[in-house]
Design a protein around this nucleic acid. Structure first.
Lengths: 245, 245
DNA sequence: CAGTGGTCTAGACCACATG
DNA sequence: ATGTGGTCTAGACCACTGC
């Protein structure tokens, strides 16, 4: 049972403390993706607070896409398997409305050691083991994105090209089931670059074609970076959609 | 005083109805940007509901950046003059942390008639009057963005190059004071293109340099589109930052 | 000090899903 | 019918601001 801690200096609202407790339970794997967590009333009893306070904590976690409320059914741990969340972080949209789902085509997968950039983005020591994936993303058989994906080797032990090729669905849904890793948020840095020979061939565009360079760092619980990737997007027939509010 | 309308078919929560009423008051100009709206208790009395219900309505408006809560002071109508909101929709960031504020340099301003694209994006009839602005955005004296901005002429009567050049601050803060228009949200479509001669010269980069093409439609109250712009971003020393969650 | 938003509680009732 | 989340209320008290 959390203390009220109502004396000014380090004041933190009760519902924030509850939020932290729920996050800790999630991190510890007490409830796994797709599963329902206990009812608000149960949690209120467990934490010794009122239902309204638990509710506010869950409200925030829900708006952060960490939990998912379903009226009448319960509150669930968000999962990358959920069709609505499958390519949640992919903002690429066909110019002409076709709503085809993208398909991931792994090309290579090898091990390496962290250089300066990887070490900075993944917050690991220089020289620590990495697993690198190169893959193609196709929309309706047309290649649209080439990705190079850097993963901390310690977290992704045993990841192989074969495992990637056998998997149907998004990378993140594989990461979730095989490595128990949920991506919570990500940050993307976008620039325009000229296509070099290799990616140009993979994407089926002339060399020097302007491409979007999208660098992404993805974070799991506790704002821990666990993926760094650089994608080259062909924007001949697609665009990157961003809703600002 | 709103009815409960608790019979299933068209059920809408009370706080949603309150939210709509507040939005209507905002649209009608009952309270203007920067001003405080009445206290939660006053609004509760006015609408004949409890304070908690008004609170939930304001919570949502606040999370949509339409209102701004300040503890101990009151709830305020969001304004583009607010330093924190000045370039709220500009996602461009220097590669090397320099935190200089961008400066807007208007180049031209003329009148025209809506073609197909403008008519579609601004939801106005073909051939209706437009005002078009061309301008440069500089970071620390370096040109980084060329914009062409399309505005429905009826809303922006009397906008001139001189008015633009006299204004210090963001375009949207000018729109707010001169035309009573607040931008609520925007949608951007991003592609990579090769610089043509004219924009290349303005941006001080070689012709054919890859640039970001950022097309934006901005909306005011009631999801009414009131601005369409196309920007070309030089990403030699800046990148477009997008936080995904 | 009074006024504002922010937190917390307890209880009632509604809407949705399932058996 | 039961259990879940969703809404609404009324009241108490806390934290922040400014007079």
């Amino acid at each position: 049972m959390p203390s009220m801690a109502h004396l000014s200096p380090t004041f933190s609202p009760l519902y924030q403390q509850i939020k932290t407790l729920i996050l800790q339970a999630l991190e510890a794997g007490e409830w796994t993706p797709g599963q329902a967590i206990p009812s608000e009333q149960d949690l209120a009893t467990r934490f010794g607070v009122s239902q309204g306070t638990v509710r506010k904590a869950i409200d925030e976690l829900s708006s952060e896409n960490i939990l998912l409320r379903r009226q009448g059914k319960g509150t669930f741990v968000a999962s990358h398997h959920d069709p609505r969340a499958l390519f949640r972080f992919l903002r690429l949209v066909p110019l002409s409305g076709g709503g085809a789902q993208p398909v991931s085509m792994p090309l290579e997968c090898w091990k390496a050691r962290a250089g300066q950039e990887a070490s900075k983005n993944l917050q690991v020591a220089m020289g620590s083991p990495l697993t690198i994936i190169r893959r193609l993303l196709k929309f309706d058989t047309k290649p649209v994105v080439v990705d190079e994906i850097y993963l901390p080797g310690e977290v992704f032990q045993g990841l192989s090209l074969e495992m990637l090729q056998d998997w149907e669905g998004s990378l993140y849904s594989l990461f979730e089931t095989r490595f128990g890793l949920r991506m919570i948020r990500a940050s993307e840095r976008i620039r325009a670059v000229a296509a070099e020979r290799a990616p140009a061939e993979l994407l089926g565009v002339p060399e020097h074609t302007p491409l979007l360079s999208v660098e992404r760092v993805a974070y799991t619980y506790g704002d821990k970076p666990v993926e760094w990737r650089r994608g080259l997007y062909s924007t001949a027939e697609h665009f990157y959609l961003n809703e600002l509010s």
